[in-house]
Amino acid sequence: MEAELMTLASSGAATLVGLMISDAWTEVKDGIARMLARGKAIEQVARDLDVSRTELLQADGSKDEQFVAAVEGVWRARLQDLLQAEPALAEDLRRLLMGRGTPEAGPLREVHNMITGGVQYGPVIQAGRISGLAFHLPKPPGAPDGG
């Protein structure tokens, strides 16, 4: 396999794993499954993607670097095989890597958050999924004593 396609498979696997542990996954999963299946066994590819995602989330996403690298390795090998069998996949992978999504999934969207309207005296959190957090905030300056 030529070096460019091997690099593309490596980048594709890293992007795929990054998407799996992101909030964007639900938007792009079906398109990626169709892209990787190339019209064959879409359900099986979708199940394989779901298994990898579940394993990554159970391993606490990007915190277990060895496990993430292992999952990337599995998908890298799979992408290399697909690129050899289906050279047209290269263009779809390049589109995904450039943030333009897959042909079936549409473009990936960026999210920009802004906080306006005054002074914030504590943490401001904007997220798709949060679990297990507890905040113990100091009293803002000038706030009446609650005691």
Score class of each variant (00 low, 15 high):
Glu2Thr: 12
Glu2Asp: 15
Leu5Phe: 04
Ala9Cys: 04
Ala13Asp: 03
Ala14Met: 08
Leu16Asp: 01
Val17Glu: 01
Leu19Glu: 06
Ile21Gly: 10
Thr26Asn: 14
Glu27Leu: 14
Gly31Thr: 07
Met35Asn: 00
Met35Thr: 03
Leu36Val: 09
Arg38Lys: 14
Ala41Pro: 01
Ala41Asp: 15
Ala46Cys: 00
Ala46Gly: 10
Arg47Ala: 14
Leu49Ala: 00
Leu49Tyr: 01
Leu49Arg: 05
Gln58Asn: 15
Gln66Ser: 13
Phe67Cys: 02
Ala69Asn: 07
Ala69Ser: 13
Val71Glu: 02
Val74Asp: 07
Trp75Ile: 04
Ala85Gly: 06
Ala85Phe: 01
Pro87Arg: 03
Pro87Ala: 05
Pro87Val: 00
Leu89Asp: 01
Ala90Glu: 00
Glu91Gly: 08
Arg95Pro: 00
Met98Asp: 13
Arg100Trp: 09
Gly101Ala: 08
Pro103Arg: 13
Pro103Met: 07
Gly106His: 01
Pro107Gly: 15
Glu110Arg: 12
Val111Phe: 02
Val111Pro: 07
Asn113Ser: 12
Val119Gln: 11
Gln120Asn: 13
Pro123Asn: 15
Gly128Ser: 14
Gly128Leu: 02
Arg129Asp: 12
Ile130Glu: 12
Gly132Glu: 02
Leu133Thr: 11
Ala134Arg: 12
Phe135Met: 14
Phe135Val: 12
Leu137Asp: 08
Pro138Trp: 02
Lys139Ile: 09
Gly142Trp: 08
Pro144Val: 11
Asp145Phe: 04
Gly146Met: 15
Gly146Ile: 15
Gly147Lys: 15
